[in-house]
């Protein structure tokens, strides 16, 4: 009974963050702010849904695999966001958009 409540709670919270990230992706004005919204999907949404499934499967090998997915995603998504932000900054610079000066990103 307790595990049912916990699973439904974590699934609902994860879905809430996915919803927030999608609304941000569709409504916010430029690539950087959109990235700010979608990284919530990647970390909190994915993490909470997987925590719900770890509770569902209990202490088995599958839970270890799910935990591996959590670790992998939490390592790779900040890296991907960093690379996308760098590319977006240089691209906007090349197209002549006004952005704050960041000397480290100009090589």
């Amino acid at each position: 009974m307790l595990s049912t409540i916990l699973i439904v709670f974590f699934l609902a919270t994860g879905l809430f963050f996915f919803l927030v990230g999608t609304v941000g992706l569709l409504r916010l004005p430029d690539a950087f702010t959109r990235m700010h919204a979608t990284t919530k999907c990647d970390t909190l949404g994915e993490g909470l849904v997987l925590v719900a499934l770890i509770i569902y499967f209990g202490p088995t090998l599958l839970s270890v695999k799910l935990f591996l997915i959590v670790v992998f995603v939490w390592l790779t998504n900040p890296t991907a966001a960093h690379i996308i932000a760098k590319a977006a900054y240089r691209n906007a610079e090349a197209e002549g958009t006004k952005l704050p000066e960041i000397t480290e990103l100009k090589e």
Binding site: L25, A31, R34, M35, T38, A80, I84, N91, A92
Partner: peptide
């Protein structure tokens, strides 16, 4: 293009 990459990532 950066918007598209962000979207495909999510």
């Amino acid at each position: 293009a950066a918007d598209r990459v962000v979207s495909i990532n999510v």
